[in-house]
Simulated scan of single mutants.
Amino acid sequence: MDFGIASVAAITVIAYLVGIGCKASGSVKDELIPVICGGVGAVLGIAGLYLMPDFPATDAINALAVGIVSGLAATGVNQIYKQLTKTGE
């Protein structure tokens, strides 16, 4: 049984890179980066439904949800990294 985990990971990585780009540009408020990552994930989730044969959703609503959650996971990955590399203050 294959759950298309690679396609979900790909969405997370792409959303993470978009988030890093937003942060590096300095023109986007930090509070908006999770929203942007979720939006990028949503778009990629819908695209994945139609472009990837092993995508783990069979309809647009589930593809949208998978994409949004995958995009928001990028924010979580960033926070885990920040917490693990944080020095004692």
Rank of each mutant, 00 (worst) to 15 (best):
M1R: 11
F3G: 13
F3S: 11
F3P: 07
F3R: 15
I5N: 11
I5L: 15
I5W: 12
I5F: 11
A6P: 06
S7P: 03
S7G: 09
V8N: 02
A10R: 08
T12S: 12
V13A: 12
V13K: 02
V13H: 00
I14C: 06
I14Q: 01
Y16M: 15
Y16T: 14
Y16S: 12
V18D: 00
V18M: 03
I20F: 02
G21Y: 00
G21K: 01
G21C: 08
C22N: 03
K23V: 12
A24R: 11
A24T: 08
S25G: 15
G26V: 09
G26E: 06
G26F: 08
S27P: 01
V28L: 04
V28M: 04
D30R: 15
E31G: 09
E31C: 09
L32E: 01
L32Q: 06
I33W: 00
I33S: 02
I33V: 15
I33D: 00
P34I: 10
P34F: 04
V35Y: 00
V35A: 10
C37I: 02
C37W: 00
G38P: 09
G38W: 03
G41M: 04
A42R: 02
V43H: 03
V43L: 13
V43A: 15
I46K: 04
G48A: 10
L49A: 05
L49S: 05
Y50I: 12
L51C: 14
L51E: 09
L51A: 15
L51V: 14
M52F: 13
P53D: 15
P53K: 14
D54Y: 02
F55P: 06
F55L: 10
P56Y: 01
P56G: 08
A57I: 11
A57M: 13
T58I: 10
T58Q: 11
T58R: 12
D59R: 10
D59N: 15
A60T: 15
A60L: 14
I61H: 08
N62V: 11
N62F: 10
N62P: 05
L64P: 05
L64E: 07
L64M: 14
A65P: 02
I68K: 05
V69H: 01
V69P: 01
S70H: 03
S70F: 03
S70N: 07
G71A: 07
G71N: 04
G71S: 08
L72H: 06
A74L: 06
A74H: 00
T75N: 07
G76N: 04
G76S: 04
V77C: 12
N78P: 00
Q79T: 07
Q79M: 06
Q79K: 07
I80N: 02
I80P: 01
I80M: 07
Y81L: 15
Y81Q: 09
K82Y: 01
K82Q: 10
K82N: 08
Q83F: 03
L84E: 06
T85W: 01
T85K: 13
K86R: 10
K86S: 06
T87D: 08
T87K: 12
T87N: 11
T87G: 15
G88L: 06
E89Y: 04
